[in-house]
Computed example of a mutant assay.
Amino acid sequence: MTPTHLPGRVAAIPALPEQTRTPPSTNALEKFNTAPVDEVRRLLLTCLRSLSWSQRITAHRPYPDLDSLLAASDEAAYDLSPADLAEALAGETLPALPEETYAAAHTALGAAHAAYEARFGHAFVICVGDAPPGEYLDRILEGIRSRLTNDPEEERVVAAEELRRLARERLVRHLTGTLGTHQGIPPGGPRP
């Protein structure tokens, strides 16, 4: 039997290719801008598990367009303190691998993640870009292996950048069709 997930935390979400991105409807952005503070914070916490990030984005509403919202998201992510970064990393979870993934792949991912977490003391995060779903596992394993050579400070910077990219992609997904249905999305965000 193939396990559907592994213990531990690795976050990966594909980027949406530019040509498939649907701009948010005026209604979705308007809903984001006018929704109750608690609802918006809950939605934002599915994008990035940092209270200060979600509070900052919420406090600066309304946003005139998606680009302004994404710029604010990026700026808030760049300003994460070490404690905020640790909080966000702690909220990331291992993505579900496709059902047909071999048990050996699960074992390889679990071992690579354990080595990463032992070295850096936090979850591995990566935004897999526009990779096809069949390549997610390879991209994740390649990322873990290559980043294990980083020194801790260099890896903190890389992990923060990956979190920023993940937050941005998750926010785009919410505003291009899933706004209002975010209840039930796992803490690490939507899964590929």
Rank of each mutant, 00 (worst) to 15 (best):
Y63D: 12
Y116D: 01
I57L: 14
T46D: 03
I140T: 07
Y116R: 00
A118C: 07
T22K: 10
T58A: 15
Y116I: 01
R9Y: 05
L175N: 03
A11K: 14
G91D: 11
L94K: 10
P24C: 09
L109G: 11
I144K: 10
A77H: 02
P98T: 00
S73G: 10
E99H: 07
P64L: 11
T58P: 05
T26F: 04
R42A: 09
G129T: 01
S25L: 03
N27D: 15
D151A: 10
T46Q: 04
R42Y: 09
V10D: 04
L29P: 04
Y78M: 12
L16S: 12
R156K: 13
R147F: 03
A72I: 03
R147I: 02
Y102T: 12
L66Q: 14
R168Y: 13
T2M: 11
G143Y: 08
H60Q: 14
A159D: 00
A131K: 10
Y116C: 00
P187C: 11
R145I: 03
R147T: 06
S68T: 11
L141P: 03
G184M: 05
L29K: 03
A123N: 14
R170S: 01
P24I: 06
N150I: 02
T101R: 10
P190M: 12
T101L: 09
L166K: 00
V172D: 05
V172C: 05
T101Q: 08
E153C: 08
N27S: 14
A160I: 01
D67W: 08
S52P: 00
G143W: 06
S81N: 01
V172Q: 08
L80K: 11
T93R: 09
Y63A: 14
T181P: 01
E30M: 10
V40R: 11
L70D: 05
A71R: 14
D65S: 15
R147S: 09
G91N: 14
V128D: 04
P62H: 09
T181L: 09
Y116M: 00
A160Q: 09
P14Q: 10
E75F: 00
Q183T: 15
D67Y: 12
R165I: 01
L137Y: 04
F124H: 09
L48S: 05
T176W: 09
D130W: 00
G177C: 14
E18H: 13
A167V: 02
R165C: 03
A83M: 08
S25Q: 07
T93D: 04
V10S: 11
T34K: 05
E117L: 06
P95W: 04
A104E: 15
P64D: 13
C127E: 07
P82N: 02
I57T: 02
E18I: 12
R41A: 15
F32G: 10
A104Q: 15
E39R: 13
E142R: 15
P17R: 04
Y78H: 13
P62V: 06
L51S: 04
E135Y: 06
R173T: 04
V10W: 05
D79G: 10
A167W: 01
N150W: 00
T22G: 07
L6K: 05
A76D: 05
